[in-house]
Design a protein around this nucleic acid. Structure first.
Lengths: 224, 224
DNA sequence: CCGGATCCTTATAGATACTG
DNA sequence: CAGTATCTATAAGGATCCGG
């Protein structure tokens, strides 16, 4: 096993769970990684997404996660010269852990959840709770929320991409709505027909594709 | 949302992942829960399974997890009068999180893992990496390792129960082996034919059932 | 500005001893 | 056996500062 950075506590067990927690179990670590699930971010982006983390802890976590091989730091070439953090392929494999944690957290008896709710959180809810559709369904979307825009790609009924980005090419439909409305759809507090009827969701492009997408989101239970 | 215990830090985000980490994200919490995955334990059992945890931290975690609704504390009636900790149904739902974490940890570039390796860890590896067999396969087993005995039940090709226990009734086969041998089988360092040939695994009862079980364990990759 | 480093204070974890 | 009490060592939280 590769040595841990000095000064790092390890659980000292030859158990894959303990090992995983040695790498990503410290306070804030998984939330930093979570911020990178929808695409690369800069240091300042992470700070504003996680206002309660202190700069020293954020810097420490990024260093540790980079050393662990979960996060990668890139410096964009001139004239941009910005530093970006993103997930390594192995870091992106934490997706299954996030899905399991989110589904479990959603079953919590301590609901409803309170606190900050960001555009990213709602979109990640969409990713976590997206249900596969018919195998012949292929579509691309752009979704605009208040502060961010996202690109979705559905292939064979499955959500194969969801990232913070302007679409690389033409999309089948562009959807504009608010964080609150999308959140209400995901939690089941609102159904897609009434949302569209009351013009809380607007779209341009292939409206059948939009209907299909909204249909996979409406749920019986109540995620967040 | 139900109030957190006073003095408890919360991430303060309305995100199911952040909420889950508020409840089970503190140091040692998931490892304490892990020790309960194979059945109830007493305080002293937990201490010896996690020798590096201090008594005050263990007591604190048990209190917090009980308050969170993940762990339950029971006092056995007279004349036993022992106190047992076990998982609530919702706590047991963390199974999916453990499986995801264990699979991720196993793909770590920092392997091979070093440190303590307990009977429980190896048996949990069996649970994590058990591959479903034919739907008509039903069987029960008892497995003896060095220090513990376990009860397994396979129904319709799936592992529906694996707990630290003497079997409640007759089993199809009783298997005796060592932690090291079972671990080697799971990691692929040893194959079941040579293990049985060299008598590192012995069994009584239905030997076809034993063959079927060992066949699901032998793997191409290398878990721990 | 952005990307941190530094300093100081507070909260938690770790170690050891001890008690109902 | 099942913890609590006490003390020390680290890590996190918060404010400020600094170099590119």
């Amino acid at each position: 096993m590769v040595d841990m950075p000095v000064g790092h506590r390890s659980y000292g067990q030859a158990c894959p769970v303990a090992h995983a927690l040695d790498l990503i179990g410290e306070r804030w670590a998984l939330l930093v990684i979570r911020e990178l699930r929808l695409g690369p971010r800069r240091y300042a982006d992470l700070q504003s997404a996680l206002p309660a983390i202190s700069p020293s802890v954020l810097a420490q976590r990024l260093r540790d996660l980079e050393l662990a091989g979960v996060v990668r730091k890139r410096t964009l070439s001139a004239p941009i010269r910005a530093q970006l953090y993103d997930l390594t392929p192995w870091g992106a494999d934490l997706e299954a852990v996030f899905v399991a944690l989110a589904r479990w957290g959603n079953q919590s008896p301590h609901t409803p959840l309170t606190g900050e709710l960001s555009d990213d959180t709602v979109m990640l809810g969409l990713r976590t709770f997206f249900r596969a559709g018919p195998a012949q369904w292929n579509a691309t979307f752009q979704i605009h929320l208040e502060h961010e825009s996202y690109h979705l790609r559905v292939r064979r009924g499955r959500l194969v991409e969801l990232a913070r980005a302007e679409p690389p090419g033409p999309v089948d439909a562009v959807i504009s709505t608010s964080r609150a409305v999308l959140h209400a759809l995901l939690t089941g507090a609102l159904d897609n027909n009434s949302a569209r009827a009351s013009r809380q969701i607007s779209s341009t492009g292939d409206s059948t594709a939009v209907d299909n997408l909204l249909a996979t989101l409406t749920r019986p239970a109540s995620p967040t």
